[in-house]
Structures are given as structure tokens and as C-alpha cells.
């Protein structure tokens, strides 16, 4: 489904990013994987290359840092041009507003928002040159619905939706599609920190009565990356097992 395409995925060393890398490779895409965790990323690269006949470039990148992105971009310049950008790198730092330190606010925005902007800005010229491509931003159900104790994280994920819809309008004339995924309660490291009682309560609110898996999200990312969604842009697709019913 992605034969001949190259996808850049940020935050690819684990969780949803890793699952997206795996399913994209299984569908023939060459990969550029970025993460701050070079060691884990190398493991992901080896695992993928052992299973699939695709090229996998990796680099240690801090998406909060324009210089770091520029250096990584330079590393692949002339070798690789991307067709698909997946802005997946994210953090979830929580606190009720009354108890929120500035670092929590900034931490959420620096990675989740600035990171997506900077990475897209650095790579979008590849897609413009090809007059086509797909940009997939990972938002969250919390960015759509809000969540007590998560105002900073939720605001950062809402910002991703505004970013997605605006960029979709900018780039639609160039045949570049921009969409967002809004995962619900997905079994990743981010939710591992949530207390069991809170987890149980959240599960009760899910129509399908189970946590999602990174693979559940990755399958929808594959749809958005491929020509199956050739006429889909500016959309926010929930992957939440019925949490928003």
C-alpha cells in the first residue's frame, strides 16, 4: 500500500510511533525514524529490517530543537525525500491548573505543538516538490473533549487540531493532505503512569470496554498515509473504541 513511499515518523522508538513504523514497513514504505532514544530506535530499526525489505534511517532528534531537526534533515539530504510525515512525538504532563508549574505547560507545548510545527516546516518542502503527500498529526481525544487535570496537555492537543485544519487548507492546492488522529485510551507508556482506579473508571467510559492498542492507531495512520484516503484532508479521526459516543 505504501510501496515507493518514504515516511518520517517522530517518537518512533516506542508505543504508537513504533507501531506505525512497523505497519508502514509491512506495507512497503521506507522509513526515517526520529526519537530522543537512539538506543531504542536502533532496536526498532533492526527489528523492522529483519522482517521487511525496506530502508530504515534513524537519528537522535529532539523535536523541540530546530537545530536538532536541521541536523537530522541534513543527514538524509540528497538521499531521501519524504512523502509522509507523522508527527507522533509527544509528552503528557498533567496537573490541575491551580497546581501547575510553568514547566508543565511549556513541556506539553514544546514537544506536542512546537515539535510538530518545526518538523513539518523542515520537511514539507519534500512534499511540495512532489506535489503530493500526507501529513498525519497525532492529537488526542483529550484535545477534542477535554479532561480534568489535563488542561495543558489537552490544550496542546487541541492546538494540533487547529494546526491540522489550517495546514490542510494551505496545502490542499498542492495535493498534500493533512489529517489528525485522536487516540483515546491506548495501552502505551503514557497511560502506564495513570493510577489503577482512574484506569478502571476510564475503561467504564469506553463503549468497546477495552483499551486500544498502538496497532489500532497504526492501522488508521496507514489509511491516512495511503491512497485509500486520497480525498480525505483536514479531518480529525477518533480512534477511541467508542469513548466519544
Amino acid at each position: 500500500m505504501l510501496q515507493g513511499k518514504t515516511a518520517l515518523i517522530t517518537g518512533a522508538s516506542k508505543g504508537i510511533g513504533k507501531a506505525i513504523a512497523e505497519i508502514f514497513a509491512a506495507n512497503g514504505a521506507d522509513l526515517v525514524l526520529w526519537s530522543r532514544q537512539k538506543e531504542s530506535l536502533e532496536t526498532v530499526r533492526q527489528e523492522i529490517m529483519a522482517r521487511h525489505a525496506v530502508q530504515v534511517h534513524i537519528a537522535e532528534v529532539d523535536v523541540r530543537n530546530a537545530e536538532s531537526i536541521k541536523n537530522a534533515r541534513q543527514e538524509i539530504a540528497g538521499k531521501v525525500q519524504v512523502d509522509i510525515i507523522v508527527n507522533n512525538a509527544g509528552v503528557m504532563l498533567d496537573a490541575p491548573l491551580m497546581m501547575m508549574k510553568e514547566a508543565v505547560l511549556m513541556g506539553n507545548f514544546e514537544t506536542n505543538v512546537y515539535g510538530s510545527f518545526l518538523v513539518t516546516q523542515a520537511l514539507m518542502k519534500d512534499l511540495i516538490r512532489k506535489r503530493g503527500g500526507s501529513i498525519i498529526n497525532i492529537s488526542s481525544i483529550v484535545g477534542v473533549q477535554g479532561s480534568a487535570g489535563q488542561s495543558a496537555y489537552a490544550a496542546s492537543k487541541s492546538a494540533i487540531i487547529g494546526f491540522t485544519k489550517s495546514l490542510a487548507k494551505e496545502l490542499a492546492p498542492l495535493n498534500i493532505r493533512v489529517n489528525a488522529l485522536a487516540p483515546g485510551f491506548i495501552d502505551t507508556g503514557l497511560v502506564a503512569t495513570i493510577p489503577e482506579a482512574a484506569k478502571a473508571k476510564t475503561l467504564g467510559n469506553i463503549g468497546m470496554k477495552r483499551m486500544g492498542t498502538p496497532e489500532d492507531v497504526a492501522k488508521v495512520a496507514l489509511f491516512l498515509a495511503s491512497d485509500l484516503s486520497a480525498y480525505v484532508t483536514a479531518q480529525v479521526i477518533g480512534v477511541d473504541g467508542g469513548m466519544t459516543i
Binding site: Q74, A77, M124, K125, I128, R129, R131, E170, P173, L174
Partner: peptide, 22 residues
């Protein structure tokens, strides 16, 4: 316009094999 400006930048980068900063 802003759309063709994006095309222009990518075109210039390709033709002259350069990278144009933001």
C-alpha cells in the same frame, strides 16, 4: 501567491541544489 511561492522555493532548491532557510 502564497501557494505558488511554496512551489517556487522547492523549484529553486531543486534547480540549484541548495537549501533555503525559513
Amino acid at each position: 501567491d502564497s501557494v505558488s511561492h511554496m512551489i517556487l522555493i522547492s523549484q529553486l532548491e531543486e534547480v540549484f541544489d541548495v537549501s533555503i532557510d525559513t
